[in-house]
Nucleic acid binder design. Structure first.
Lengths: 236, 236
DNA sequence: CCTACCGATCGGTAGG
DNA sequence: CCTACCGATCGGTAGG
């Protein structure tokens, strides 16, 4: 992801250009500056809340002047929406990768004749663990501000913006249901699966409020604890 | 707390008092007006967030002029803090009543020789159910805005205000731990009790985001589902 | 992307 | 508790 960021101060400029030093015209860092704004906004929205963060705060965080964010975004709300949409798209990618890795590890085990698990597909419990682990990653890794902003600031979206975010959310929550249904059939989950999904995701989402990356233990251990809390031991 | 607040309009003004019609002077609603502000603020803070709610919004909600809330509260933040403190004190009362009712129902059962439960004290599972049920009451009953405001707006408190709220929170969370420890000993909870408490309270707290009082089913049913999700069946 | 600016709104106050 | 008001800040824009 490291793009070429040539400041190009030497390529032209016969004399000294007016104003502070400029980058060369072929330095197209438009997307870069825009992304910087998005990241700064995500961090500020998460720490202070959307309404309590001024567009001046965001501009200052990336060394811009107060009016400049509006060159990249037509409004403060559009910036918020972009944070959420990017956060959810990234979360969907992470979730898909986690499920894919789970399947592949089982395919590999099967390919070498390792069939102790009895079936080709990962067990429902393993699948739930993978979903939980990916979810903690998305919420709690240092710098993971985008999805927490979505979780806690969606009230500030316009109804139209909310629609697109809700659609992404539904897509993200979809894989949880069949896994919980499997666990229910196995007798390892004694609760309505729809309510169970709401309660489980709530338990995980709330970790944003109390988890401390420096002293909170590993996300692996946390995922194990959560899994053991929600599903019952295998029937003997 | 109802102090004598004589507006004195009648002691002087011999004709018709200026301004809109006044209530009679013996209508001492000082505490009442103050409580009205607190309730209106709680509802607005919950629905729009603290930073997005103006003191003018709050004043208008109770029919006051824009500067009048500052007759009752020295700042917007003091009003927020009062919402949270009242919410937590009320929650503590509700929780204590629920636990007391649980114990009394067992005492009564014992008094008439109904000893099917084998012991005098309520079972840990029953105690957890009572805690969960009371918690849902505190969060989800129509008009229960105070504690949700505390859960979602504590960032807006000053450090000093936060201390008093955190102390109330700790008091509220205290009774959960011994109950979870009992369940752990019984083998009905397979997780670190401290983490279990965080995860369980998170699952419940998050219900504020999705529960719909009109169509969401009863809080009794919801409590049963949550209980079955978190604790394992009794050992055979 | 900066400069310079605008109208609106905000929390809060004095004085009655 | 209202009236009248203040300074500060805010989101956003024109023009370069």
């Amino acid at each position: 992801m490291s793009e070429t960021l040539d400041t190009g101060l030497l390529t032209e400029a016969p004399r000294r250009p007016r104003g502070r030093p400029r980058k060369s015209p072929d330095d197209r860092d438009e997307g870069n500056r825009r992304q910087l704004l998005i990241h700064a906004a995500a961090a500020l929205f998460r720490n202070k809340g959307f309404a309590a963060t001024s567009t001046r705060d965001i501009a200052a965080a990336v060394g811009m002047q107060s009016g400049s964010p509006f060159y990249h975004f037509k409004s403060k709300g559009a910036l918020l929406h972009e944070v959420m949409a990017q956060g959810m798209r990234s979360a969907l990618r992470q979730q898909a990768l986690a499920l894919q890795a789970l399947r592949q590890s089982h395919d590999a085990a099967q390919a070498v004749g390792d069939e102790y698990s009895g079936g080709a597909a990962p067990s429902p419990a393993e699948a739930l663990r993978a979903l939980i682990r990916a979810h903690f990653d998305i919420l709690l890794c240092p710098g993971s501000d985008f999805v927490p902003v979505m979780l806690y600031e969606w009230r500030s979206l316009t109804p139209r913006q909310r629609e697109t975010v809700v659609a992404l959310q539904r897509e993200y929550e979809a894989p949880w249901l069949p896994v919980l249904q499997d666990l229910h059939r196995q007798g390892r989950l004694h609760a309505n699966v729809h309510l169970a999904r709401l309660l489980i995701l709530g338990a995980l989402n709330w970790s944003v409020q109390w988890f401390n990356a420096e002293q909170g233990g590993s996300l692996d251990e946390l995922s194990d604890v959560a899994l053991r809390l929600f599903i019952h031991p295998e029937a003997a």
